[in-house]
Design a protein around this nucleic acid. Structure first.
Length: 591
RNA sequence: GGUCUGGUAGCUCAGCUGGAUAGAGCAUCAGCCUUCUAAGCUGAGGGUCAUUGGUUCGAAUCCAAUCCAGAUCACCA
């Protein structure tokens, strides 16, 4: 049990015994004591004043005395300052945690709780390569999944591939018109980039044709509809839905190129999926749902046969769920898929990692699912994240300001290489080891950069300044790990208990934060927020570095101190490593 | 216009289920490598927590209004 919970429990029990009143842990606040005061944890007394009808000092004195007497294996002393009861935990308590857990790679993680969670993330269109925004999505989804696992859930990672629709038709048309049979192989291009080039070509041609029509006096919108190339794309979509064989085979071919490209990127950044759904298989889902919804009177049909749901009583608008021609719209497929996911996996929670531009859509989806009484409707959770923007504003593919995923990964590796060579600490590495190290550091910097910010906040990426390797960054944490490992390679830890008269402030500070790991995982899991882990792991590294600068480990004052510090170092490395793993970041042994 | 999100140091961000003098990193300045990896450590300067009002013993945090920025409200996905 965590120290926080133990203190809460002890305090509740003491209050009960002292005043014969029962409290819960929500009735008083428990904080870590601020560094300028003596103590480890602090109970804020003000909130108890009303129900106990005593002054804060009075309560603090009685509670402090009672706790130190009754729970002397936990508390050693207390002081009260202005309504704050500062409690000092006995050193043996911290030392027990240390000797018990210093090499436990599962430290902080929970037993399986029997819950099943599905995390859907990435979900790209198949007409262009992945960009920095996708990377935020991928890292968030992957990390959230790992955090949920660490907190005891069974997790299914999934992905819905938007492999059909007008966007891919556009690439297909352009390929037919301009490629002369070129392939990724013949042009030596990565498949997703290859197809993306044709998507760009489509838009270039479209722009040309629009301009010509505009010269004839049409306005922009009319012109776009009337361009031959747009009409071709729309016709192609119809033909595709009709299953025209030539088209299907072209579609398969181009999608397979894209998948080859995606696979390379996924593998590089460490993304993986237990199950992939394809829109070409799910887009017809929902017909049944519409029928059922009509029967349940959740949906209503207009005169033109289109089907709607009225959400005005929920503060939203009317939403169409089936077109007048009987085809289903995006949201209908989503409802169908939501149900399918549940039927296939009987999941307890269904998480969607999707950008905040779809907040409204996801709200509607959940609301409809609830109104239809779908079994898992309540447990649909939209993990919404803000857009990644450039200093100049949004990334726009049309203006060529999109930061390509492969490019940025490459660039980070190059920066890692340059910095590593500059420092010259790993000259004995083989070429292979160096390549791995550059990837580890480059990706570490990138992932940490994208995960350290709270998901729902939009973030700004400045390509000019690139990503830092100092301070609140992945490489800083990785470096700390490498430093610790360097020490541990040189000295052997004896698994002995030791009696230490008193822990030095920095030793204790380290232990206190290390002990909190489990609580941090719990919070990150409940809030679906990997940035909690990033912030925590950085804090651990920072405290370790202070400790490292202040106290010698291998040349400690005594053999006992040396053993204590070796164990402390070992536990720090373990926690840093598992924390970083939850973010999808490797930590090197040397760098 | 309706709904939702954000606004904290020059920059990027923590803190937001109310608690002690609002914290980090970057940048700037001053120190620290003959001792375990200086991608590090120590210190300094830097704040009208968008604004105004309210609730409270206590507000960056909760409530209301206003201002600014963004997203969204399609028989697109």
């Amino acid at each position: 049990m965590s120290i926080v919970k133990q203190i809460q429990q002890a305090a509740i029990q003491s209050l009960n015994e002292l005043f014969n009143q029962s409290f819960t842990n929500k009735d008083f606040q428990l904080n870590q004591t601020k560094p300028e005061f003596e103590g480890d944890y602090t109970i804020v007394l003000f909130s108890l004043v009303k129900s106990l009808k005593l002054s804060p000092d009075d309560i603090g004195n009685q509670l402090g005395k009672h706790l130190t007497q009754k729970e002397e294996s936990i508390f050693t002393k207390f002081n009260i300052i202005k309504g704050f009861l500062n409690l000092t935990i006995v050193d043996e308590y911290w030392l027990t945690i240390l000797t018990r857990s210093y090499k436990d790679v599962c430290f902080g993680k929970k037993e399986m709780n029997g819950k099943k969670v599905m995390v859907e993330y990435s979900s790209p269109n198949t007409n262009k390569p992945l960009h920095l925004g996708h990377l935020r999505n991928i890292f968030l989804g992957w990390s959230t999944a790992e955090i949920l696992k660490a907190n005891g859930n069974e997790v299914i990672k999934t992905c819905i591939v938007n492999d059909r629709g007008i966007h891919i038709c556009k690439s297909m048309i352009a390929w037919q018109l301009f490629a002369n049979g070129a392939t990724p192989k013949s042009t030596n291009t990565k498949g997703d980039h290859f197809v993306g080039e044709y998507y760009v070509k489509f838009n270039d041609e479209l722009k040309k044709q629009i301009n010509e029509l505009k010269k004839q006096g049409m306005n922009e919108k009319e012109a776009e509809k009337e361009t031959p190339i747009m009409k071709q794309a729309q016709q192609m979509l119809l033909d595709w839905e009709a299953g025209k064989p030539v088209l299907i085979s072209l579609w398969n071919k181009m999608n397979s190129w894209v998948y080859e490209g995606f696979d390379i990127t996924y593998k590089k950044v460490g993304a993986d999926f237990d199950k992939a759904y394809y829109e070409s298989n799910t887009y017809l889902l929902g017909k049944k749902i519409v029928e059922e919804g009509l029967q349940k009177n959740v949906f209503a049909q207009d005169e033109d046969a289109s089907v709607w749901i009225d959400l005005t009583t929920d503060g939203l608008d009317r939403k169409i769920v089936q077109r007048s021609d009987g085809t289903s719209v995006y949201i209908t497929q989503d409802i169908g898929l939501a149900q399918q996911k549940y039927e296939e996996y009987a999941i307890d929670q269904s998480i969607y990692v999707i950008g905040d531009e779809q907040n409204y859509h996801m709200k509607v989806l959940k609301l409809i699912a609830e109104k239809l009484n779908l079994p898992n409707a309540q447990n649909i959770y939209h993990l919404s994240y803000g857009m990644v923007e450039l200093p100049s504003g949004k990334m726009k593919s049309r203006e060529g300001t999109v930061v390509d995923a492969d490019d940025i990964v490459n660039e980070m590796e190059n920066v890692a290489k340059a910095k590593t060579e500059e420092l010259g600490k790993v000259k004995d590495f083989t070429t292979e080891e160096l390549t791995t190290l550059y990837t580890t550091i480059g990706l570490g910097a990138l992932k940490f950069f994208l995960l350290r910010v709270e998901p729902k906040k939009k973030m700004i990426f400045n390509p000019e300044e690139s990503i830092d390797f100092h301070g609140f960054t992945g490489p800083f944490v990785q470096y700390t790990h490498a430093r610790i490992k360097s020490i541990l390679r040189k000295s052997e830890i004896q698994n002995s208990k030791f009696k230490i008269q008193n822990l030095l402030p920095l030793e204790k500070k380290l232990l206190i934060i290390l002990e909190q790991f489990g609580g941090v995982i719990d919070k990150a899991a409940n809030e679906h927020n990997p940035s909690e882990i990033a912030i925590y792991v950085f804090e651990v590294a920072k405290i370790f570095n202070s400790f490292y600068a202040e106290h010698s480990i291998t040349n400690a004052e005594s053999e006992e101190k040396k053993q204590l510090r070796l164990q402390l170092a070992s536990m720090s490395a373990t926690v840093i490593k598992s924390g970083m793993q939850l973010l999808g970041i490797d930590v090197p042994e040397r760098m």
